[in-house]
Structure formats: C-alpha cells, structure tokens
C-alpha cells in the first residue's frame, strides 16, 4: 500500500520508534528481574579466547545498556523525520536493528553470570550474539514494515512538466540517444589506447584483456538510448546493458531539471547525486544538461540527461495521467 502524500510526521516517527522503545522497556524489565542475582562485579569484556578480562559494576553495565537503548530510540525518531519514504524506512530500520542486536547481545552476556560466585570462569556466550543478530534483523525488518510507504513529492527547485496531449486512441513514442560528454569520451579512449600500447610493448597476450574490456565497456556504456512510450521509460546501452526501466504504473511524478554532472554527480556515468536539489537521485548522467526526472511510487528518484528532455518528460507525464485515469 503506497500513499500519494507524506503521512503525518507523528505516524512515521511512531512507526520508527515502536520497536526500539519496546526493546528498551523489555531490557529494563529483564534487568530489574535479574538485579538481585547479578554478581558484583560482572564480567564485561572478554579476550580473544573468550575468557573474561574486564569487569564492571552491575550499575555501569545497566547504564550502558539503557544508554544504548536510548541512543537507538533517538536515532530511530530522527530517521522518522526524513523527507523520503526510502530514507525514513532504511535509516529507522538500521537504528532499530542495531539497537535490538546490541541490547539482546548484552543481556545475553549477563545471563550465564546470574548467581555465579566467581565470574572469571564464565566464558563469553557466543550463542548470545547469534540470538542478538536474529532479533536485530527482526527488529529492523519489522520497523521497515511499520513505516508507511509514500511517493515522494518533487524535490524543491524541480518543477513538474505539462503533459503532452494524447488522443484517446493515439500512441506516441519518443526516443533519443544520449552520448557521453566529449572529455569523458577522450578520457575513456585514451585509457583504452594507453593500455593497448602497454600490452603491445610488453608483448603480453593476456595484457590485451585490459584494453579489450575497456573497449567493450566504452561501447556498452558511453551512449544510451532513452525511450518513452506507453509502457513507461526505458534507458539502455547498445548492448542491452546497462539498462534501467520504469514501468508506467511505477511512475509517481515526472519532472525535467537542469543537471550539472561534475558539481552534483561528481562526473559522468551511472551516478548518484551527492549535492544539489536532486541529492540521492540516481541515473544516467553522461553529460550536463536537461534531464528527465522520474519519481517512482516507492519514493526512489531516477533520471537521465538527454537532449530535448522536455519533450520526453511531457510525453511520460501524459502517459502517467492516462494510466492514472484507467486505474
């Protein structure tokens, strides 16, 4: 179930903190239950062979445990304020999972020490970490399920596009080739030529593998064909790989935006934006220029820089609206 608008912050944060809070309360309850039987000091550190080599007061271990639980809780709450569903779900799952693992494992190291007189004989209980791992993964997964999915709005500074006019029975296909910026081609060609030269000078047959692989990579990835049709958006290299396909039913919003390859994506290729309004978006940035930007229903943002991107984006928006009416 995917919502079209961001649910209230309260709902997202509640989903994010539910399991870390539960883990914190349960750990507190277990500690309270065990308090009378905990030896003083307890073993709190073990050497490589699993023999205890560090000891602490039960109060110090309890504070550490509760402290970790609170940190996980705060981290999960902060994750719940993220603007995209993907970020909120993955960050909160990480916080919740890590918290669940640490609390369970720590309690697990205390369990065999209950009521023991000489804790220096209590070996590190390895199964505690296995159980911790299982509970941690379960906490992370459950947290990702508790946070609703929503389609991200267009990032600020990125405008939507007007849909292309489509007759009721009309079919239109827009298709264009995007080519890597000239400096990128020069660099790739030089690298191929240089390694080829090396291989020839050294007279080594297997060294030829490097320029061959580079050459193949150049053919495969230096240009892509971008196609918008009734099925959605398709980007593919001449050899069929790399490729990206966004089905029309997976499109939540379409935009066209100016993209700077170096400043925002750190170069040319299939990349993730590290800066700028599209931060976190990934896609084919073979040069700077206008890009078709697609926001998926899952919240992910894909883009491809291509000449005449406005026409492609408008057609995709036209099909998106047609598909939305049919639903």
């Amino acid at each position: 179930m995917i919502e079209q608008e961001r649910p209230s912050s309260g709902r997202v944060v509640m989903g994010a903190v539910a399991l870390p809070l539960l883990m914190l309360l349960l750990s507190g309850a277990v500690l309270a239950l065990w308090w009378g039987q905990l030896p003083d000091p307890v073993a709190s550190h073990w050497d490589a062979a699993g023999r205890p080599d560090g000891f602490s007061s039960p109060a110090a271990v309890a504070s550490l445990l509760m402290g970790l639980g609170v940190v996980a809780l705060i981290a999960a709450a902060w994750a719940g304020t993220a603007s995209t569903s993907t970020a909120a779900r993955s960050l909160a799952a990480l916080a919740s999972g890590t918290g669940g693992f640490l609390l369970t494992s720590l309690l697990g190291t205390l369990a065999p020490q209950l009521g023991v007189g000489d804790v220096s004989t209590v070996m590190l209980p390895l199964p505690a970490f296995v159980v911790g791992l299982v509970i941690g993964v379960a906490c992370g997964y459950a947290t990702s399920l508790l946070i609703p999915r929503w389609a991200s709005p267009l990032p600020q500074g990125v405008d939507g596009v007007r849909p292309a006019e489509l007759g009721p029975t009309e079919v239109a296909v827009w298709s264009r080739v995007a080519l890597t910026a000239t400096p990128g081609i020069v660099i790739a060609a030089s690298a191929t030529a240089l390694t080829l030269l090396f291989a020839l000078v050294l007279g080594s047959a297997w060294m030829l593998v490097v320029p061959l692989a580079l050459g193949l990579l150049m053919v495969a990835a230096l240009s892509v064909r971008v196609t918008v049709g009734p099925q959605g958006l398709r980007v593919a290299g001449p050899l069929g790989w790399p490729r990206a396909v966004v089905g029309i039913d997976d499109v939540a919003a379409v935009a066209a935006a100016e993209v700077r390859a170096m400043a925002e994506f750190g170069g040319w290729g299939y990349r993730v934006a590290v800066r700028g309004p599209l931060q976190g978006a990934k896609g084919f940035v073979l040069r700077s220029g206008r890009a078709i930007v697609v926001i998926r229903r899952s919240g992910g943002v894909e883009l491809v820089v291509v000449d005449d991107a406005g026409t492609g984006a408008a057609l995709l928006e036209g099909y998106r609206q047609r598909a939305a009416q049919l639903r």
Binding site: P168, T169, E170, V171, A172, W174, L315
Partner: peptide, 9 residues
C-alpha cells in the same frame, strides 16, 4: 524523435 500514430485512424 517523437512518433505519433493513431490505430483508430
């Protein structure tokens, strides 16, 4: 390149 066709035509 934009190709438009209408199967109903």
């Amino acid at each position: 390149m934009l190709i438009r066709i209408d199967p109903a035509s």
